[in-house]
Amino acid sequence: MSDTLKALVQACRAGEADYQDLIDRVPYARFLGIQVRAQGEELTFILPRNENNLGNPTLPALHGGAVAGFMEQAAIIFILLQMGEPRVPKTIDFTIDYLRAGLYQDTFAECRVTRLGRRIANVHISAWQRNREEPITIARAHFLLSDENA
């Protein structure tokens, strides 16, 4: 784990750095074009409408993999900001339910940490387009936080 990451996480918490800097460190997050918006302590992640993330070309609909990757990355950033000793969490498992087609629109996601243990975090992620009450996908994931035995 690099000290630059730790310093950046601390700066974000203190309001001295932009959360976006944390996302832009990750090549794959830039590949998808992920953005973040902070309202007070609440974070909303955004996957802006981008034709590179399309799966079904005729509908058109977003690629399920792009939405999943977006949600996984949102959870990783979310946990990173809650960890005492920030280290990039490793995904143990990721389970997604697709409820509605992802339209060719901006997509939003929010995370809820169900449990943040010393070694393992359980996170729930919800993604929506038109309104928060009608999620297009929900996901549940476990992350390994500690490097021991990894």
Binding site: V26, F31, A66
Partner: peptide, 21 residues
């Protein structure tokens, strides 16, 4: 550009997810 952890160079789980889906 598909790396998830810039400190290690490991592919992002999301890219593997898209492959498997």
């Amino acid at each position: 550009d598909l790396v998830g952890n810039p400190d290690t160079g490991v592919l992002h789980g999301g890219a593997v997810f898209a492959l498997m889906d």
